[in-house]
Simulated assay, not measured.
Amino acid sequence: MRRARIVEWLVLYGLSVLAALALSALLVEATGGDWRSVVNALLDGSVRNPGRWGETLGTAAPMLLVAVGTIVSVKAGLVNIGQEGQLLVGAAFATYFGFLVGGPGQFNVVLILIFGCIGGALWAGVAALLKFWRNVPEVLSTLLLVTVGGQLVAYGLGQSWLLLAPLADRGNRNQVSRQLADDNRLLRPEIFGNEIPFAVGLSVAAALLVGFVLARTVWGFRLRMLGRNPRVAQRSGVARTGYGATALMLSGAFAGLAGAVMLAGGGFAFGNYQLVPGFATNIGWTGLLVALVAREKALVAIPVAVVFAGLRTGSSFVGATGVEGRITDVIQGFLVLALLIPPAVMFLRDRRRARAATTDRV
């Protein structure tokens, strides 16, 4: 029975992905391109060309951190969709306190990462306060706080006493922070001609740790209990406010850590070791999609983040084929839908079987 169910899942996922790829190919052809050229461009830009798979892994790291934080909040039954703002505020905290403290070398890198977590957690904490003090739905407050956070960071980038770099360090750019010194950056060792930032190992370790904590610890069990049945959880002694607020703030902390990683990791189109307008570049939204596609499983989020990062890094090569590079966003949307269809189909099938079994008993 179990083996048959696994086969059903694999067949559904296989058919859904094939359908998504077929639709993507038809869309490329309809826009005047050649789908084979687009596929080759995506592969060249993400893995095949020299240095590209290192670029893809570096891009996947912050996506994975955001996804891991999202999984924590979802397990508690909370819907955090403000990761983009939490990431940006975390990066702003990391920038401000990184230059304020200015410790030596890698010690300051650790401080940057810590303050990134603090910034993201505090910003998510605003939503937690509204949720558990005034019963404001977190799905609404976290989303609205994205805009507020963006405006606050924009204000900070306009003030020299906050984030704005001195005039001599800005060159011809108007609103940028100072650039991190060489010894205040995350290590990026070279492996087979690819620079692999330390953030990759950090994000994978975070996914493994969260997966273990949620599945194998009492705290994780209580959090999952709260997410599945809050009333039973409260009767069992699980404090809804304490666990819920902690989960939401942890989700923000991981998003803030992603922002700090993007700042200290540099490269990978993340601002070149300084905070700039548009710094988040939709990494928060993409990380949310990674968690959604991974069905709130931390370990599954690792390969999903790599796939999404590959689409992102490969998109820069698609333009050479004569097709608009943004076509990869549509392909990404098709893949998201494809990976969400099988759970829906299985749910409907299980419900139909349960009803049939009940009818037979009657």
Rank of each mutant, 00 (worst) to 15 (best):
M1I: 11
V11T: 09
L15S: 09
S16H: 02
A19V: 14
G32H: 03
R36H: 13
L42C: 06
L43A: 14
D44R: 13
G45A: 05
G45N: 09
P50N: 10
G51W: 13
G54F: 08
A61H: 03
L65A: 10
Q86D: 00
A94H: 04
L111Q: 10
A124E: 01
G125M: 12
G125H: 13
K131S: 03
F132C: 11
F132N: 11
P137D: 09
V146W: 00
V146C: 04
G150H: 04
Y155N: 03
Y155R: 03
G156W: 07
Q159C: 03
W161K: 00
A168V: 08
A168G: 02
R173K: 10
L180N: 01
P189R: 13
P189K: 13
F192P: 02
G193E: 12
A199K: 02
L208W: 06
V213E: 00
V218G: 00
R222H: 14
L223P: 04
S251W: 06
S251G: 15
A253F: 09
F254W: 00
G256E: 05
A264L: 10
V276K: 03
L289T: 10
V300P: 09
A305M: 06
V307N: 08
L311G: 13
S315A: 15
F317V: 03
E324V: 09
G325I: 01
I327G: 08
D329C: 00
P342D: 05
A344S: 09
A344H: 04
M346S: 11
A357S: 13
